[in-house]
């Protein structure tokens, strides 16, 4: 055994001493001061400063996410460099890329496996609304059709600066929360999102009745739908376009803005 340092016993004793507080001397001018803060402040500060993202990449945006975590942009400045591959250990899901129908059940399942408090950042045009691939037959037009999203980061792909800005917005959101009102301390508030299923096309279990109505009506209308082969129900549903009230309101609003712009 290597020779022990001369003060070894002393060092060992120091280690074993129960509390060091008594040894730490507080400067005189601070002794009379008392610092007061709120539970929320401490709680949010600690959550925001060590928000671990899920190691989860979907498409092109994942490359920029990696670049953000790498040396030049250095996500560890925000305490976020610890990317956890397990949803159980992570606080933040960065949906980085195109969400496809084949993938969406897995994403919802991963989201369900994350423990509260959990946050979702939708990174890039595809995850936000389908992006350039919106019309594709295998593309989901935005992850927010299935799971709630906290921050949307635009771009195709967003630059690392944009992602960092989005994450800072995320931190601001965390800072505004209060232990009293956050949903995960309320009774029965954190619920599983039903996992979409892959039928003839992907379907949301929450919409089964709606789908059934439409497809069965299309079948009873018969001949017209059958003539279009596989896309029958779609043709029927598409038919003469019945815009929803929401859509009409939105279009009216757009027209009004356009007129205002024209002067």
């Amino acid at each position: 055994m290597a020779s022990l340092p001369p003060n070894f016993q002393q060092l060992k004793q120091d280690q074993l001493r129960p509390f060091l507080h008594d040894e730490i001397s507080v400067p005189d001018e601070l002794e009379a001061n008392v610092l007061i803060t709120t539970v929320d402040k401490i709680y949010n500060w600690s959550r925001r400063s060590s928000m671990w993202p899920l190691l989860f990449g979907l498409a092109c945006c994942a490359i920029e996410m990696i670049a953000t975590a790498a040396s030049r942009y250095d996500l560890s400045r925000f305490g976020m460099e610890v990317m956890r591959p397990s949803p159980r250990q992570s606080d933040l899901m960065i949906v980085s890329g195109t969400v496809t129908k084949k993938m969406v059940p897995a994403i919802v399942r991963i989201y369900n496996q994350m423990a509260e408090p959990r946050y979702v950042v939708s990174m890039g045009a595809c995850a936000t609304g389908g992006g350039p691939f919106k019309e594709g037959y295998n593309v989901v037009s935005g992850i927010d059709k299935y799971i709630p999203v906290d921050v949307y980061v635009p771009g195709c792909p967003p630059t690392p600066e944009a992602l960092i800005y989005g994450l800072m917005k995320m931190h601001e959101k965390v800072d505004r929360q209060s232990v009293v009102s956050v949903p995960w301390y309320q009774k029965d508030s954190s619920q599983f999102v039903p996992v979409p299923r892959l039928g003839p096309d992907v379907f949301d279990p929450r919409q089964v009745e709606l789908i059934k109505d439409t497809t069965l009506k299309a079948a009873s209308n018969g001949a017209a739908a059958a003539s279009n082969g596989a896309g029958g129900a779609a043709a029927e549903a598409r038919g003469p376009v019945q815009l929803s009230e929401k859509a009409i309101a939105r279009m009216e609003e757009a027209k009004r803005r356009w007129r205002a712009k024209q002067g």
């Binding site: 497809t215 079948a219 209308n221 896309g231 129900a233 779609a234 815009l243």
Partner: peptide, 15 residues
Amino acid sequence: DKLPWSKNTTYPAGW
């Protein structure tokens, strides 16, 4: 807005 389930999906008639 053009599809009742407001998602990018179609289903065969009678499904």
